[in-house]
Design a binder for these strands. Structure first.
Lengths: 223, 223
DNA sequence: CCATCTTGTGAACAAAAATTCACGTCTTGG
DNA sequence: CCAAGACGTGAATTTTTGTTCACAAGATGG
């Protein structure tokens, strides 16, 4: 009952790998479980990828590629900060809905720590950091965004929110947290999240204290 | 060379457990490593805690207790939203600085997934969710905060930022991410983070689009 | 149709780690 | 100071899992 390892079988192998690495981490992943899930023997797995480490690399780069692709179109057409933010939110909500396994993998790897963490952060965050930092710098230069912010910190907070929103869609713990706060599943309330997150971000990035006549709280002149 | 398992030895055991569970997760943790790090034999470890699962429970509840304690004083004296937010930020920045191991444990557990995730989320987030939701509801009722927000989603986003800021202080990946965006270590720039995060949150929760005469962007009347 | 090569299989091997247990070491009550 | 009991030790056992390898099944070329 030999079945030649076709493209689709290799595809299944990578999918199984991503799933398992996401579930149990780089070290904890079980090679036998991966082979079983992919429907091949462990021997074949080792023939194709020399070992766990090589398979991991393949799974990671596959998922990085997918993330890059998901964000590629964001800056295709020029726009202002708010429009960019909307596109990013949409793209990442969609990404987490369609490629939950990749997002779970990021979540697990980010939690893992160790000496590889720094390199990994550079690889993953490199994709988003440039986009966010540029978007914010451009918005600030154009006068769209508040001047009284530390762009680096604000970009980090922007990234933080987007990461957590992705996790909320497909990682068990974060999904439970979403249910706790909002009821229901994020995957069924994407419009709600898109709307509110955009509102949240727009205010955070646009309005500075100086704009409100009396610097204190309580500010509903027009109700 | 028998050394009776004193309180301080039990203390060391729990510390070692937290550290190891944080590093390698609930399943991946190595009992031998825990025993070694605590300076006792595996036999003694098993005498004191029936096995890995029981030890884990002890480590978890210890860390939950610490989190509760860290946030206990926040609502001790009544105040407005901004002051509460400031206290929460301070408390959690301090927590992540002093109890990095607990924060790393949360980060790892949150990433783990599985059927226990929901229960875990209820336990951990139960501590913060009530606080955040109430703070926001009260602020909104008092007219301190914008009316045009979905309090549930905004509370989730608030929590997300606070979680990520904690991670940024003590989890390898998130620390690397912090360096990437901001340069340096968060633990050496706490004032910067406190200031900017408070600014970010205040704007997000306070200002609604309706407040700005022309609903569009670009809003620096007074510079 | 056969020899040979390529490719896949899963049992076997080895290393790692959870858990147990027979045996020391110290304490304590007398 | 001693016997009994409590406590701690780490080697041994068992289970899990990464990796290898001898063998088998199909392909290929003549």
């Amino acid at each position: 009952m030999l079945r030649r390892l076709s493209d689709e079988r290799l595809e299944a192998l990578l999918r199984a790998g991503v799933e398992e690495f996401a579930r149990r981490g780089r070290e904890g992943a079980n090679m036998r479980a991966i082979a079983d899930r992919a429907g091949i023997s462990v021997g074949a797995l080792y023939k194709y990828y020399g070992g766990k480490e090589r398979l991991f690399e393949a799974c990671l780069s596959r998922s990085l590629e997918a993330l890059r692709e998901a964000l590629a179109h964001v800056t295709a057409e020029p726009a202002g900060f708010q429009e960019y933010a909307r596109r990013i939110i949409r793209a990442l909500l969609r990404f987490s809905q369609e490629h939950g396994a990749y997002v779970r993998l990021y979540c697990t790897l980010a939690a893992a720590g160790g000496p590889e963490a720094a390199a990994l952060a550079k690889e993953i965050e490199g994709i988003t950091a440039v986009l966010y930092t540029r978007t914010i710098a451009a918005g600030q230069a154009a006068g769209d965004l508040r001047q009284d912010m530390d762009p680096a910190v604000f970009a980090l907070l922007f990234d933080s929110l987007l990461m957590m929103v992705q996790f909320s869609g497909c990682c068990d713990y974060y999904r439970a947290r979403y249910r706790l706060y909002c009821g229901g599943e994020l995957t069924e309330q994407e419009a709600r999240m898109e709307r509110e997150l955009l509102k949240f971000l727009t205010s955070a990035f646009t309005f500075s204290e100086a704009e409100v006549p009396h610097g204190d709280r309580r500010g509903e002149e027009e109700v």
